[in-house]
Amino acid sequence: MPSAFQDDFVKFINEKCGTSRDANGQLTFQAGIVASLDALVKEFVSASNEEQRAILSRMEEEVAKLTGSSAR
């Protein structure tokens, strides 16, 4: 079981490196989530068909702006 120190250290490393790992090296539930797209996905799921088209267009614009590991 990880100690509080280990948890704090892993949190620090995750913040500085942009990673999402727990103290055991496993991916957390946040892994792979792009914050700018997450909100749009939530909007898309609850939107009507007509609204979804506009949201999809906004998603495409956001994806074009991504760089680095987020773009992959």
Score class of each variant (00 low, 15 high):
Arg53Asp: 15
Ala71Pro: 09
Leu40Glu: 11
Ala31His: 03
Arg58Asp: 00
Gln26Tyr: 13
Glu15His: 09
Phe12Asp: 10
Val63His: 07
Ala71Glu: 12
Glu61Pro: 01
Gly25Asn: 02
Arg21His: 10
Lys65Val: 08
Ala23Ile: 01
Phe29Ser: 08
Leu56Gly: 15
Asp38Val: 14
Gln30Tyr: 08
Met59Trp: 05
Phe9Pro: 00
Glu51Leu: 01
Phe29Cys: 01
Gly32His: 03
Arg72Pro: 03
Gln30Val: 03
Pro2Leu: 14
Gly18Arg: 07
Glu60Pro: 01
Lys65Glu: 06
Glu43Cys: 09
Ala31Val: 05
Ser36Glu: 14
Thr28Tyr: 04
Asn49Met: 12
Ser70Asn: 14
Asp38Ile: 15
Arg72Ser: 08
Ala64Lys: 08
Leu27Val: 13
Met59Val: 05
Ser70Met: 04
Arg53Ser: 14
Arg53Met: 14
Ile13Arg: 02
Pro2Phe: 15
Ile33Gly: 15
Ser46Thr: 02
Met59Tyr: 08
Phe5Cys: 04
Leu37Gln: 12
Asn14Ala: 02
Asp22Val: 05
Asp8Thr: 00
Ser70Pro: 13
Gln26His: 05
Gly25Trp: 11
Asp22Cys: 07
Asn24Thr: 08
Lys42Thr: 12
Arg72Met: 11
Gly18Thr: 06
Gly18Met: 08
Asn14Leu: 07
Asn49Cys: 13
Ser70Tyr: 09
Cys17Lys: 10
Met59Ser: 08
Val34Gln: 06
Gly68Ile: 11
Phe44Tyr: 00
Arg72Gly: 06
Ser57Leu: 03
Ser20His: 11
Arg72Leu: 06
Gln26Cys: 07
Thr19Asp: 00
Phe12Met: 04
Gly32Val: 11
Asp8Asn: 09
Glu50Arg: 06
Val41Ser: 10
Lys42Phe: 06
Arg53Thr: 15
Glu43Trp: 13
Val41Asp: 05
Ala4Trp: 02
Ala47Lys: 01
Gly32Asp: 07
Ile55Glu: 02
Ala23Glu: 02
Leu56Met: 14
Lys42Ser: 11
Leu27Pro: 10
Lys11Ser: 01
Glu43Lys: 04
Ala71Met: 09
Gln26Phe: 05
Asp38Ser: 15
Ala39Gly: 14
Phe12Thr: 02
Ser69Gln: 12
Glu60Lys: 13
Ser46Ala: 13
Ile13Glu: 05
Gly18Ile: 05
Gly68Lys: 10
Gln26Ala: 06
Glu61Met: 08
Glu50Gly: 01
Glu62Asp: 13
Phe5Ser: 13
Cys17Pro: 00
Ala39Leu: 15
Leu66Trp: 13
Glu61Leu: 04
Arg58Phe: 07
Gln6Met: 13
Gly32Gln: 01
Phe5Leu: 04
Asp7Ile: 06
Ala54Tyr: 07
Glu62Tyr: 07
Ala39Cys: 13
Lys11Glu: 05
Arg58Leu: 04
Ala4Tyr: 07
Ala23Met: 03
Thr67Ile: 11
Leu27Ile: 10
Ser57Asp: 12
Met59Arg: 03
Ala4Met: 00
Ala71Val: 00
Arg21Cys: 04
Glu51Gln: 08
Gly18Val: 10
Phe29Val: 10
Ala47Phe: 09
Ala71Leu: 12
Leu40Pro: 13
Ala39Glu: 13
Ala54Ser: 09
Glu51Asn: 05
Glu15Arg: 02
Thr67Phe: 09
Ala64Tyr: 03
Arg72Asn: 06
Ser46Lys: 12
Glu61Asp: 00
Gly18Gln: 01
Asp7Ala: 03
Ala39Met: 14
Ala4Arg: 07
Pro2Trp: 15
